[in-house]
Computed example of a mutant assay.
Amino acid sequence: MSENTTEVIVGAGVLAAAIGFVIYASQVSGFTGTATTYPLEASFRSLEGVSVGTDVRLAGVRVGTVAAVDLNPETYRADTTVSVQQGIEIPDDSAIVISSEGLLGGNFVEIVPGGSPFYFEAGDTITDTQGAVSLVSLLLKFVSGSSE
């Protein structure tokens, strides 16, 4: 009887750990079935380190994800669609930039809010963009002493 009780307790512990892992993974990945979003468009010179699913942040808080990335064959720019959580109003003079989490961290898309009293609507284009800055090219400029 003691052996059977131990097996049930260990089994319950394993099951609880598995459920905890699933809950944690869904929160980290941002998987929620009830959240609705709206799309915004942007065109970047360089989208280095950003792909579909990359976080979109506002004031350091995750407010959406990168939904689509396509190369525009006419302008040679990365046309990007970001999905922003419904209810988050972004002023229509805001900028969108590719930021880095640090030297060893990955890149993410950051929305820098403006001060306009008017807001972007679903499908609008953010024209004030700043692409990714290559850390390698910055280091090469520093080492070579180039002022370009």
Rank of each mutant, 00 (worst) to 15 (best):
M1F: 06
E3F: 09
T5I: 15
T5C: 05
T5M: 06
T5Y: 10
T6G: 02
T6I: 01
V8S: 04
V10N: 06
G11T: 02
A12M: 04
L15T: 07
I19A: 07
V22G: 08
Y24Q: 04
S26K: 13
Q27A: 14
V28L: 08
V28W: 15
G30C: 13
T32N: 11
T36N: 07
E41G: 02
F44S: 02
S46Q: 04
L47S: 04
E48Y: 14
G49M: 03
V50K: 05
V52C: 01
V56P: 02
G60M: 14
G60P: 13
G60N: 15
R62E: 07
T65P: 01
A67H: 05
A67M: 01
A68S: 15
A68N: 12
D70R: 12
L71R: 07
N72T: 08
E74Q: 13
Y76V: 13
R77V: 01
R77A: 03
A78P: 01
A78F: 13
T80S: 00
T80V: 11
T81G: 04
T81P: 05
V82I: 15
S83D: 15
Q86Y: 00
G87Y: 11
I88N: 15
E89S: 14
I90F: 07
P91Q: 03
P91M: 00
P91L: 06
S94F: 10
S94R: 05
I98L: 01
E101F: 03
E101N: 05
G102P: 00
L104I: 04
L104P: 00
G105R: 10
F108L: 09
I111A: 08
G115C: 02
P117K: 13
P117F: 00
F120C: 09
T125K: 13
I126H: 09
T127A: 10
T129Y: 05
G131R: 08
V133N: 04
S134K: 13
L135A: 12
L135Y: 14
L135M: 11
S137N: 13
L138F: 09
L139G: 06
K141D: 13
K141S: 14
K141C: 10
V143T: 01
V143D: 08
V143C: 01
E148N: 14
